[in-house]
């Protein structure tokens, strides 16, 4: 796959500390990472290592304590909530492990959600919804409710929803975690197809087979990236993490 050398996502020394009354948890410690435009990156690592935290920060769902974060060439470290919402809406598509479709909206309306917040014209929205549902092969199920679909179909709707807004970056957090391996492969095919159209994809997965299909593999252990290109020869994951 060809892509320009511009960075879609550049994180430098990002730390995230969760503070509760009792303890402070370092979810990310001085994490540095770069994802190029058009890249397909798989992120793996043991449970509790900070993958979701990384993804949430990358998707501007959460803030971080130290470090800088540039998204698509723009420093997004200290933006207002509104500005972050706008960037999420326009630049980023999310895919979650538990699909997170809105149960009382039909498929069409679910895909419509991000477009609504962009105040798009009705005709334009319809066009985009239809084409993205077509892409995931569910154009015929537009009037169905999420509960009337299988898990794999629901996840495909979620993918359609993520790409409907034509984002530059897709963030997927274990999108296949709730699916069987056949379904998982279908989802992976879809993601590759989307990546093939130029969208950067960051995928968190436990599945080594799927991860291998990505252009690049990143390991996060204990809040630190182990083998990004810049840190090619990092130490191996710790034993306690491997046990997971």
């Amino acid at each position: 796959m060809t892509h320009s050398e511009a960075a879609m996502l550049r994180m430098q020394n990002i730390s995230k500390i969760y503070r509760t009354e009792l303890i402070e948890t370092y979810a990310l410690r001085e994490l540095s990472l770069e994802v190029k435009e058009g890249e397909f990156v798989a992120v793996s690592g043991p449970s509790g290592s900070g993958k979701t935290t990384f993804l949430n920060i990358a998707g501007l769902l959460e803030t971080f304590d130290t470090g800088t974060y540039e998204l698509d060439g723009r420093d997004v470290s200290r933006l207002s909530d509104d500005a972050r919402s706008r960037i999420r809406n326009e630049k980023i598509g999310f895919i979650f492990q538990s699909f997170n479709l809105i149960p009382d909206l039909d498929i069409f309306d679910n895909v419509d959600v991000p477009l609504r917040y962009r105040r798009m014209k009705a005709a334009e929205r319809r066009k985009r919804i239809e084409s993205s549902l077509e892409l995931v092969g569910l154009a015929a199920r537009m009037k169905h409710l999420p509960s009337q679909l299988s898990g794999g179909q629901q996840q495909r709707v979620a993918i359609a929803r993520a790409i409907a807004g034509d984002p530059a970056l897709i963030l997927a957090d274990e999108p296949t975690g709730n699916l069987d391996s056949l379904m998982a492969r279908q989802i992976m095919d879809l993601l590759e197809k989307i990546n093939g159209m130029g969208t950067t994809v960051v995928l968190v997965t436990h599945d080594a087979e799927l991860a291998r299909r990505a252009e690049r593999n990143i390991h996060i252990v204990d809040g630190v990236v182990l083998d990004s290109p810049s840190q090619a020869h990092s130490p191996q994951p710790r034993a306690e993490s491997a046990a997971d």
Binding site: D82, S85, N89, E90, N100, V113, P114, Y117, R118
Partner: peptide
Amino acid sequence: VRRALGATRR
């Protein structure tokens, strides 16, 4: 979910 998809607080 709506917030994640880009809805502002307002």
